[in-house]
Structure formats: C-alpha cells, structure tokens
Design a protein around this nucleic acid. Structure first.
Lengths: 194, 194
DNA sequence: CTTCTAAGTAATCATTGACTTACAACCGGT
DNA sequence: ACCGGTTGTAAGTCAATGATTACTTAGAAG
C-alpha cells in the first residue's frame, strides 16, 4: 500500500500540491483544513506537502497568491478581449465565474478575505484584494461606483458557492437569487454543480 | 487567583457568553477560535462555556442564530421606520452597518456563510442567508435585482471588515473603495475603527 | 441555621494535527 | 559502476484544545 509514488520534478510537484490545497482550503478554510487532507488529495505523504512549502501557513499563502494571480490573469484576458469599453461587467463576470471550474479557488479567496487579523496572512489578503480592485479601476476603466458594485457581486458569488446554495436550486427563492446574481452565467454555474 | 466570579442566572450568563463568542468567532472564525479564548473574554472558565451550550459547535450555532436574528430585527425596524417604500436601501444599509457596533457580529456572519459544507452548520447557514434575503424581498418589497444588489453590497461590507481594511484608510485606493461601499455611513465606520 | 440546588472551578484526559527525523529509492554525471 | 543530490515515505514528537470529571461554594427556601 501507498508505496513510493512517481517522482516528479519539484516545480510540477509544487503545482499539484497547490491545486489540491485550493480544493481543501476552499472547502474547509485555513484553520480547519489539514495538511494531511491536502497531501492525500495530491497523492503524496503529509511530510512532503509540508516540506515542500515549509509550513502550512506558507502553503496557504502560496495557494492564495496563486488564486489571486489567476483572477488577475482572467480579468486581464477579458479586458484585452473586449473590443470597446462597453458592457465590461458581463465579460468580467463570466471570466470570474469560469474560475469556479478550478474547484475551490473562489471560496479560498473568500476564506482569505476573512483573515485580515492574521499577522502573516492579513497583509497578503489586503494586497490581493486591492490588486483586484485596482485592475477593475485602472485596467478595465470602471469608475469607483461600478468597480465597487462589481466587486460586491463577486463577493456574493463566492458566498453563494461557500454556502453551497446551488445544491438547492429547486427552492424557488434560491433559484430567483441565483438568477439575479449570476445572470447569463446561471446555467454554467448549475452545470458545474450538477 | 481567578477565584469564583460573580454568579449569574443562566440566562444572563448565556447572553454574556454569546456576546464574547461573537467577538472571538468574528476575529478568528469557527475552527480557529478556541473555547478558552471565548471563556476568558466572558470572564469565566472554559469548562463553563462548554457546559452551558454542550459543545463548541452548539455554541457557534447559537451565536450565528443570534447574529442573524439581530440582522432580521434591525431590518424590520428600518422597514417599519420608513414612511414610504422609496430610498429603502440607504435605511437598510445604515441599519446593517450599525450592527458593527456589536463587535464581531458582521464578520461572524461572513464566517458562517463559508461553512456550507459542514453537515451541522451548513443548513443553519443557508437558512439564515435565505431568511435575510426573504425579508428584503417580501418585507422591504425590493424586487429581486435590487434585493440581490443590496445583499451583494452587504457581503462586500462584511468582507471589508474581515480584511480590516478600515485600518488602512489613508491609502488612496482604500479610501475611495470605502467611500463607494459605505456611502453616507463612511464616517461612522471609520469612527468604529478609530 | 440547615439544606439543597445552581453556578462555578481546577485538573486531567484523549485526540488531533503540525512539524521533524531517519531512512529508502531513484537518477544524472563522471 | 558508483556517488551525491533530489524525491519520497514511515514513524515519531510535541503542543494545543475540546470535552469530562470531581469537587467547591453562593445563596435562596424552609
């Protein structure tokens, strides 16, 4: 049982651990997630998961930064793909929701943003949040009110995932809410949760 | 040292533990909060905090339900106080922000909404979230799009508290964001974080 | 003044989970 | 072929923490 797994170069191993970590941190949050669960999902021993990043905290920070980077990339791609500056929000919105294909990412983000009090993670959280806001302002060209409203809807979207509300889409109030929050992406979201 | 504290009737003791719990859960989240920290803030022994509610999980659920109840009450009061149905959001928004005076409440709510996966807490979280949405829809009379946008802004507000962003209000991007998210309540918020 | 119960504590248990250490196996270069 | 660094695991250590237990005491009621 569980004999030595296939050897991977460090960079690939890191990446596979980060993907597993996003899922587990997204489901359980920073404190409740165990490094053992992350290691199991990555198919390696717990010791290796820790040694690769040095500590659980460092692993979480790396995971969080990877998620923020992905959001930034997705928004930049959406901005570059937009011919004009009109109807920017729907494009950005779809890009955001598609990140949910990466299981755990969006909820990991939500967890990150609850950790402002933590001396090591708090600064990372604030920096990541402001980086995203700044992209909306300066690169997408949204005025403050629209950037904030978009961000607010993004937090609601992540909250809906965190609540696992899409599993109750048969409830009439829930389906109305999902429709209002996700608009043209509602079907996509329900598919991801089928 | 720490000889027996003043005795309180059970109901009062419960209440004081719940207030302490909201602060500690709001700061650290469900998993990272320790029952010992809650007990210390309430000025009692850890054993009593646990015994009064049976378990940490039961204590968290009681705390969460108390916070949701307070939000519901605050919204109902705001709705009753509104002469007409116009400009409902600013009234509700102020009521929401004022709940931050109860330290920890709003961030506890945010933590609650990340716990959808938990078999015991998840249902409580979804029920609380939908209860608030339903009040906005059916009692405040907001159409789905406006109720959702208001809810989204509420999540952003809680996120800003979770990030402890108001402590960095001197940053120009932060102050712009705070202004856009809090509107006429910005000064109130900054005062609460002074 | 005695009793009885509710409210409280200190001490300890059992579990869990992050991290360490010692060792095994795989490979590339000389 | 062999040797050193890299990749990996198994088996532990140690601290933290939720829960339990056995005990104490305040204070109301008779």
């Amino acid at each position: 049982m569980s004999l030595p797994r296939k050897r991977l170069p460090a960079a690939e191993r890191r990446e596979s651990i980060l993907a597993a970590a996003a899922e587990v941190f997204g489901t359980h949050g920073y404190a409740a997630a165990t490094t053992d669960a992350i290691a199991q999902r990555a198919g390696i021993s717990q010791a290796l998961a820790i040694r690769t990043f040095g500590s659980k905290e460092a692993l979480f920070i790396a995971t969080a930064e990877r998620v923020v980077d992905r959001v930034a990339e997705a928004f930049r791609a959406a901005i570059a793909g937009a011919g004009d500056r009109e109807r920017m929000e729907p494009r950005l919105g779809e890009a955001y929701v598609r990140l949910a294909e990466d299981r755990g990412s969006l909820v990991t983000l939500l967890h990150l943003f609850t950790l402002g009090h933590d001396p090591a993670i708090g600064p990372v959280a604030r920096e990541g949040f402001l980086r995203i806001y700044t992209i909306l302002r300066d690169e997408a060209g949204l005025p403050a009110a629209r950037a904030t409203a978009f961000l607010a809807n993004g937090m609601l979207v992540s909250t809906i995932f965190g609540l696992e509300l899409p599993t109750q889409a048969d409830d009439v109030a829930v389906s109305e809410l999902l429709q209002a929050a996700f608009r043209e992406n509602t079907a996509l979201v329900l598919e991801l949760f089928g």
